[in-house]
Nucleic acid binder design. Structure first.
Length: 799
RNA sequence: GCCGAAGUGGUGGAAUGGCAUACACGUCGGUCUCAAAAACCGAUGAGUUCACGCUCGUAAGGGUUCGACUCCCUUCUUCGGCACCA
């Protein structure tokens, strides 16, 4: 009754596997296509998100193969990370054994979906043959001053007992376990990604085929802001206090300045002042508050007067210096000029503390003369007032002119500030790449020599779950010989953040077994860049930014010739159930494996592609899955009743479908591609198909439902696999219509339709139309003012 | 606050200036059957009409156009990102 998906899928998976059907070989004569999906963490089980991501990629890979491209479609595992350590603590296994077991299970699940991976290129980042090159890259960065150690206050997750990168703190909590992040003073390794900030921002312009959303997220994250650093002077000592502003046009309205509580000048300026004790208490209290509390916008801004004054360099006015929690030491200079009339935060603060205000921008559409006319700051554009030589100038123009004037007179300096910070990569964990550094009492920080790589993780480490990294407790690991002076030394016990591993794996896939470097230059030049990258939008900032950074670094090393790793990017939408993300805690998970057992992998693939366009969220629907299964059975039955010859009507529909499906798959519009395959199937039910027509349908379906199509292809008498076939092309001659249906409108409303020869002249058409009965009742005897004809489509009469 | 995306039948969605709701799910009806399932065929935006039809209808309002889901302006809602960023 139903086609035997179980037998068919097992049969073809075996055949593809034993025939190494998807092995990719460097062939300079052929045009390459590198298709990559973000590799998974090997949890052991795939979820619907994986199924969706990898199905989208698989269709594209198979489609490109049929079109004759030399396709590289690899898969591997992002295998370092915390769950392996947790499992080790819980189950008394070793992270290495646990991870490799999970990889095996996951491979099996991926194979059950029929994905066309070149398994010979598989990499796992936890293998020393891979992480050796992490260490190599780290040392290259160290040599160039791009990897450095710094003591600072860092984000610390008390639950994971490790540091976190800025990028890993989400809403003040740990990205993994959501525990509230604390600040801790530690010596940590950083990568100087900020050296690449200009290129990382500028090169976003090259990425025409990335989603707008991702580009804007990256650009926000890098956070370039152009302005002026203005030097106010301390009234008493004439010492400079730099402040940063993007609104130089408002400088004449700066009526006080504010320092961050952590500002180094604070202690100096309050010394001996009556306010000293009060300010010190305030600073102490604020510094204890976590950043989360301080930066939540609903908290009222607090501040204290320092007792000192500063000189505004543009008018030599003495303005009070305040200390307030709404100014952050990390951004700009840690000090601001406050313009209460034209900045809302300053406005609220000034009202609260009775500070002076001065209007310096006059709105174009209203008269603003007295401060009490303001109920909030005016931050729009206008004309300069109370602004000395800039009086009357439009503020946008003044912004530039004032900045230039300041630059010339030395009052200030045109500057650019960035939000992007260096990347903290030290993690106090065991299951990661050891940082290849040795600390010697005599020689200091000594990099491990290249010939000593890899620094291997010790197999035996105590996993107690208590305090600190297990690596620090392995004596044989910690104790090392200094590479320089050979004296007794100590090895770095921190490991690298796992985002390091995934920042270059796409290059490793080009030559996964290469032993003389992270990748073979010639192979990378052939296969890279990745033509199409596919993954979740949750990696829009972290992973993609780091990968771009590494690629630029490799270019600077002379290892590759390109700046950007990924030509096209597709971020697939999430899979929802009942409007919510599938998750264990919500208990709404649908297990792919059980769906494969019930309907087969082909049905699951078909449903995933049909239910929504790839970029949007997909609502899981059991009945939709059944519908997909019904469709496949409907197609299956066609082969039992093929005609000798297909009629011309059928051929026309077929070639229309070929065009539509080809165009849609090209554009990743799989849902509409499938819709037209359904229409084609419906047409076959109406008109009947011969072997030729049906073969084309099977071929068009094959990237989507590969096992199903292989089997029918064989049933149709083909000796070779459908993978060796070529994608069909439509015959343009068959798409030319002899007659066309013209829609007839009167005053823009559809009133009638008429069938006419496709090559009819406009005059002849007009003549025919005016004889149309339905139209006559609408026109009656009103004069026709206008006659608009869109060839082969529509005519609109205006009466 | 700033940046980005989106809002279409009972449901998932299609149409990017030219027949709104393709394709599917669901529902209803029919054929087959002792019966059911499966399969096949048909109907299915709302209002109104015996009916041919007509009117309304793509978050709301306005505009451009012979013609707007599509372009422009205003507003609302939802989702995502950044954010006391000076």
């Amino acid at each position: 009754m139903f086609y035997n998906f179980k037998e068919i899928e097992e049969k073809w998976q075996k055949a593809w596997d034993s025939g190494n059907a998807f092995g990719a070989r460097h062939d300079a004569a052929r045009k390459k296509y590198y298709l990559l999906e973000m590799f998974p963490y090997p949890s052991g089980k795939i979820h619907m998100g994986h199924v969706r991501n990898y199905t989208i990629g698989d269709v594209a890979a198979r489609f490109k193969t049929l079109q004759g491209y030399n396709v590289l479609h690899p898969m591997g595992f992002d295998a370092f990370g915390q769950p392996a350590e947790n499992a080790a603590i819980k189950n008394k296994t070793k992270p290495d054994a646990w991870t490799h077991k999970c990889i095996k299970e996951m491979e099996a699940e991926l194979k059950k979906m029929g994905f066309s991976y070149d398994w010979k290129r598989e990499v796992a980042t936890c293998d020393s043959s891979y992480y050796k090159w992490n260490q190599w890259i780290f040392l290259k960065m160290y040599e160039r001053g791009l990897a450095y150690k710094k003591a600072s206050s860092v984000n610390w997750c008390p639950s994971c007992e490790t540091t976190l990168a800025n990028e890993e703190v989400i809403d003040g909590g740990c990205w993994r376990c959501h525990t509230k992040v604390k600040l801790k003073d530690l010596e940590q390794w950083y990568l100087k990604i900020t050296d690449y900030k200009e290129r990382l921002l500028e090169d976003l312009k090259q990425l025409d085929n990335w989603p707008e959303k991702v580009l804007s997220m990256q650009s926000n994250w890098i956070g370039r802001s152009q302005g002026v650093e203005i030097y106010f002077r301390l009234k008493e000592t004439n010492e400079a206090i730099p402040v940063f502003t993007t609104r130089a046009d408002t400088i004449f309205g700066a009526t006080y300045i504010v320092l961050a509580p952590e500002h180094p000048l604070v202690a100096k300026i309050i010394k001996g002042k009556p306010q000293e004790k009060e300010v010190l208490e305030f600073v102490e209290r604020v510094s204890k508050e976590s950043k989360v509390v301080r930066t939540s916008s609903d908290v009222k801004k607090e501040g204290r007067f320092s007792g000192s004054y500063a000189i505004n360099p543009v008018n030599n006015e003495a303005v009070p210096i305040w200390i307030a929690d709404y100014v952050l030491m990390e951004y700009g200079t840690g000090a601001i000029m406050a313009v209460p009339t034209h900045d809302q935060r300053d406005f609220l603060f000034a009202r609260e503390h009775n500070l002076p205000m001065r209007i310096v921008i006059q709105p174009n559409d209203q008269r603003l003369t007295t401060n009490d006319q303001l109920s909030e700051a005016y931050d729009g554009d206008g004309v300069q007032v109370n602004s000395a030589q800039f009086e009357g100038m439009p503020n946008q123009e003044a912004k530039i002119k004032i900045a230039e004037w300041m630059q010339e007179t030395g009052i200030g300096k045109i500057q650019t500030h960035w939000r992007l910070r260096d990347w903290l990569i030290s993690r106090q964990r065991y299951w990661g790449t050891p940082i290849p550094i040795i600390y010697c009492k005599k020689c200091g920080v000594v990099p491990v020599p290249y010939e000593d790589l890899p620094v291997r993780l010790p197999v035996d480490a105590p996993f107690t779950g208590e305090g600190g990294s297990p690596l620090g407790k392995v004596k044989e690991f910690v104790e090392a010989e200094c590479p320089k002076c050979k004296s007794h030394a100590r090895r770095e016990t921190d490991t690298m953040a796992t985002f390091f591993d995934s920042s270059w794996y796409f290059l490793r896939f080009c030559s996964p077994d290469f032993e003389n470097g992270p990748f073979d230059k010639a192979e990378a030049e052939y296969w890279m860049r990745v033509d199409q990258y596919i993954g979740g939008v949750e990696h829009a900032i972290l992973h993609l930014l780091y990968s771009r950074f590494f690629t630029k670094f490799f270019k600077d090393l002379g290892l590759i010739s390109f700046d950007e790793p990924f030509i096209r990017l597709l971020t697939q939408g999430m899979v929802l159930k009942d409007g919510e993300v599938m998750s264990k805690s919500k208990g709404n998970i649908v297990d792919p494996d059980s769906m494969i057992k019930k309907y087969g992998a082909d049905t699951l693939r078909l449903f995933m592609l049909f239910a929504a366009p790839p970029e949007t969220e997909l609502e899981w629907d059991d009945r939709g899955l059944e519908g997909a299964f019904k469709f496949l059975n409907r197609v299956w039955r066609i082969h039992e009743s093929l005609k000798e010859e297909a009629d011309s009507q059928m051929l026309k529909i077929l070639h229309k479908s070929i065009k539509k499906v080809t165009d849609d798959i090209q554009d990743f519009k799989f849902n509409t591609a499938i819709a037209s395959l359904m229409e084609l199937t419906n047409a076959i039910y109406q008109f009947g198909a011969d072997k030729g027509v049906f073969s084309k349908l099977v071929l068009l379906l094959s990237p989507i439902v590969p096992h199903f199509s292989e089997e029918l292809w064989q049933i149709l008498g083909n000796k070779e696999s459908i993978l060796k076939a070529r994608w069909p092309e439509h015959d343009p001659a068959l798409l030319v219509e002899q007659t066309v249906t013209i829609v007839l409108q009167v005053n823009g409303k559809v009133r009638s339709k008429i069938d006419v020869p496709a090559d009819i002249s406009e005059d002849k058409l007009k003549e025919l139309i005016l004889q149309d009965d339905k139209l006559k009742t609408w026109i009656q005897d009103k004069p026709i003012k206008k006659f608009i004809a869109i060839p082969k489509k529509l005519v609109n009469l205006v009466v």
